[in-house]
Design a protein around this nucleic acid. Structure first.
Lengths: 159, 159
DNA sequence: TGCTTGTTGAGACTGAGTCTCAAGTAGAAA
DNA sequence: TTTCTACTTGAGACTCAGTCTCAACAAGCA
């Protein structure tokens, strides 16, 4: 709820009107850690079926432009969204078997990134850094069970 | 041509039949550094219009399974493919303005990745690490010109 | 109250990729 | 050779995620 109110403030300062539909989309989005666009559509429409799919997508795009949500292309399944507003920068580690997503910080990697771009005369704007592997449980589990996709998963935020 | 022949050998050892259509797709793919599936379809069909779109996609999937081709999700535009066979591992740095893609190697990052997964008890299988920025030329160029997409671009391979 | 502008729902549309299926082809077996 | 089987193909329908269009509606201002 706290985050919802903070985002509400932010949108106000940007002159973006927070309609009932947008508020609903935002409220549902902040409830998740990672979600896909279609999952959010389904979730929102379960609460209010009159909200159109297009409205959810439009709101997601709006929140993205406002710097509230980020889009992640994980290798498995459709793109994932995340409300990154008021959250420290982090990268992701994903279990390819169960889909668990862990957020991690590694400042030494960021330093090396700066060194790389400097080497080529680039100015760094952003990056994606994703690690794929097997979590402890999946390393010992039956490998034949079907892999899940990385949606709506619990995450650990790591300082 | 050398790479084409090497891949041909590899497919033979895997018992994969190299039909005329597949050979054409492969020959065109190795000619590129990075390409999108649709670009490859267009290119192949310019040479032989009788090759179906589905065949190009099927062959691409086949080459991917055989470990010859890798898929990259850059943030701008559709996924990029790359013939990585007999090529050293590398990550990518992309100019978001002109679409230039530079391949780089940074073993110290790889070492840190191992440290991260160890921290969480994961077994690392693969990773994606992409840096986005402005190349030297684009830092000084008119920022209003339309950004290009990262297709078919010249790359530098860095030892 | 009227005007302007922004937002919405509905649904058509798009692009990228997948699937199906009948026809064609390669290579092994007879 | 011919026959058989399994694989591969072209054509095109289909799917899925996402975008666009447009008429109706709502908010905020004068």
């Amino acid at each position: 709820m706290k985050r919802f109110i903070e985002v509400e403030q932010l949108l106000k300062t940007q002159g973006i009107r927070l309609t009932a539909q947008r508020a609903l989309v935002l409220r549902r989005a902040v409830a998740y850690l990672h979600f896909t666009a279609e999952e959010l559509v389904k979730d929102v429409r379960e609460i209010d079926a009159s909200v159109a799919r297009g409205t959810v997508y439009r709101t997601l795009a709006l929140l993205h432009r406002a710097g509230v949500v980020e889009k992640h292309d994980f290798r498995y399944g459709p793109p994932n969204y995340e409300v990154t507003f008021a959250k420290a920068h982090h990268d992701h580690l994903m279990c390819v078997q169960c889909g668990e997503i862990i957020e991690f910080q590694e400042p030494r990697v960021e330093a090396l990134q700066q060194a790389v771009v400097k080497r080529f005369g680039y100015q760094l704007l952003s990056h994606t850094h994703k690690l794929y592997g097997l979590c402890r449980a999946c390393q010992h589990a039956d490998p034949r069970r079907a892999p899940k996709h990385p949606h709506l998963h619990v995450e650990e935020v790591v300082a």
